[in-house]
């Protein structure tokens, strides 16, 4: 028989195991998309919020939560997605940002710089995750996934992804 103390902290530690399938170094708690865990008679409900509206990883993440918690003995795991308050890159943990950089993706700047409607706005200054130079330029505002933009370093010449401010 599986016995476990049904406290939220334990469930949160299990949720650490679930990675963003598109950025596999980040757990969903690093990303800041777990809003709450509610326990109803030992049956957990996990409240999550999407990063981007169309992020295809959300369905996989929801399935991952159910699988992981079920494998730890929980029954009838429920995952609910809420939109409000809106997720922004500020919800990402400092630990998450450090992991992103280590992985070669520039983490989001602490303050949103270009999330407005003005055209031809100057490029956001982004630090190269490889050589730490700020001498970089944007290649495209859209990248390999909805959350990333494509940059290149003018010093070490390496192209890199930037987890864009949102």
């Amino acid at each position: 028989m599986i016995t476990h103390s049904t406290d939220k902290k334990l469930i949160y530690s299990y949720l650490e195991e679930i990675k963003d399938p598109e950025v596999p170094v980040l757990s969903i708690t690093d990303l800041g998309i777990v809003r709450d865990v509610i326990l109803n008679n030992d049956e957990p409900e996990v409240i999550i919020t999407p990063t981007y509206t169309g992020c295809p990883a959300m369905d996989m993440i929801a399935a991952g939560i159910k699988m992981v918690l079920t494998s730890h003995g929980y029954k009838n795991v429920k995952v609910t997605s809420v939109l409000s308050p809106v997720w922004t890159t500020d919800w990402m943990s400092e630990e998450g940002k450090r992991k992103l950089k280590e992985y070669g993706i520039a983490p989001p700047n602490p303050k949103q710089q270009v999330c407005n409607e003005n055209l031809f706005a100057p490029n956001e200054t982004v630090q190269c995750p490889h050589c730490n130079s700020y001498h970089t330029h944007r290649i495209s505002e859209f990248g390999s996934t909805a959350c990333k933009a494509l940059y290149q370093c003018d010093d070490c010449k390496e192209p890199f992804d930037y987890f864009k401010c949102h």
């Binding site: 509206t53 939109l83 409607e117 055209l119 505002e141 909805a146």
Partner: peptide
């Protein structure tokens, strides 16, 4: 309506990207 408001608040940031990108291309 809370849900319609939430969808719009979530999506407008993405729309601002679309608007910048398409507007710049028109010019």
């Amino acid at each position: 309506d809370e849900q319609l408001a939430a969808i719009a608040a979530k999506a407008i940031k993405e729309t601002s990207y679309h608007l910048r990108w398409s507007g710049e291309w028109v010019i």
